[in-house]
Design a protein around this nucleic acid. Sequence first.
DNA 1: ATACTTATCAAGAACTTGTCAAGATTTCAC
DNA 2: GTGAAATCTTGACAAGTTCTTGATAAGTAT
Lengths: 236, 236
Amino acid sequence: MKTKDLILIVEDDPGISKMLQFTLTQDGYGCVIAENLKSAYRLFQVNNPDIILLDLGLPDGDGKTLIKNVRSQAMTPIIVISARHAEQEIVAALDTGADDYVLKPFSGIELSARIRSAQRRLLGIIPSQQHIVCGELVLQIETLIVSKNETILKLTPTEFNLLKYFMLHPNQVVTHSRILKEVWGVGYQHEMHYLRTFVNSLRKKIENDPSRPQYIITQMGVGYRFYCQNDSISKE
Amino acid sequence: MKTKDLILIVEDDPGISKMLQFTLTQDGYGCVIAENLKSAYRLFQVNNPDIILLDLGLPDGDGKTLIKNVRSQAMTPIIVISARHAEQEIVAALDTGADDYVLKPFSGIELSARIRSAQRRLLGIIPSQQHIVCGELVLQIETLIVSKNETILKLTPTEFNLLKYFMLHPNQVVTHSRILKEVWGVGYQHEMHYLRTFVNSLRKKIENDPSRPQYIITQMGVGYRFYCQNDSISKE
DNA sequence: ATACTTATCAAGAACTTGTCAAGATTTCAC
DNA sequence: GTGAAATCTTGACAAGTTCTTGATAAGTAT
């Protein structure tokens, strides 16, 4: 069995919490249910859930207290589910540290999507993709293979690392010293000549016209900018 | 004027986008506005905004395309603002990679709170880009990029420093010697000629009609004044 | 009109970046 | 281990930008 992500449901109405539990179990999550603040906080500490669903109106106090307590020690996504439609309630909950605010009655399907979104953010922070695509260029991180329009390019290790760094920072200006530090290592910040030489040889391999580069663009006095347009707008 | 976080507003209804711009400027953000997908993607690439507000119904296609394109290279928070209440629309947008989905008509105050929530999540994970915004001009401090509308301007280092100084001191008269001291360094206070030459070349690049400048305005006998429309709010 | 300030243009100097190739070092196969 | 091949390092020079400077035109105030 796969390990499931755990969701802490904080809700005093058994009807709703049972319904939530049913839906979320269907979606493949594990659930723990708290019916009041005290038990919610204890379950949070004990179980370290991946996501918290929180109803604000609880018998022993305002749910915002829980938000505050959780935020003081973790970034666990908190999705508030509430019947309180008042604007200042929503704002207060969000500003206390909630990630999202869903109004009752809510759609189970939408809630699932919002849970997925919260999860994705948590994971997506370090996007560990297998390959990076920039225009005609495809770089496979694992296999160290770079291809341009179906043809495999023959890059040396340093060239590959440099290109990888560029492709991981598309459309941003990166300074000479930054590139040198990231690709060659600390202590190489001033070896500009390395960078020039390797940019030169990279251009020869990836650019259509190396004398008029369209990928590696030099930013005079600063560094380089890797231009990348993944344009699917024109199509579909 | 301080540097601001930049918000890209993608919205084809000028009434709504103007309203958003007003609210967000009040809140201390810089804004750029796109009225269609194509321009939105370009502005995203050029300006590296900190947050994207996206209306799904655009003249040249579905906003989800933009979500896809943005997500292929960055984790920039995307808040969808839409009149489409249908559940499957919301789910689709969230699953494509949107961070939040706000229904029209929306409350400005709630939107601000949702923006703050999105920003808070990013804190410490992705260092926020610092921008200075003046009318159509957006200057990115760390990447040394200046853009006007959708195009990146090609400025030399000295031109950039001069423009940065101007944009950091908008709507105030700065004397020749002051600019020279700040931009070129102590000892250059009397090199008026430098200043004239560089103001000249800057005007050629940033002004719509360099012979009738609207940004860099000469203050006879004193110095220059950099005119900036949307600076009425934030003071240092 | 005159004196003064500001704008424009262009050419050479100074600096930054690009190119190429030879020597040094590492890697890999045998 | 040894030698061949590939890769990295280094230097010299070319090409390209940007800065500095001077000359001249345009604009303003008295």
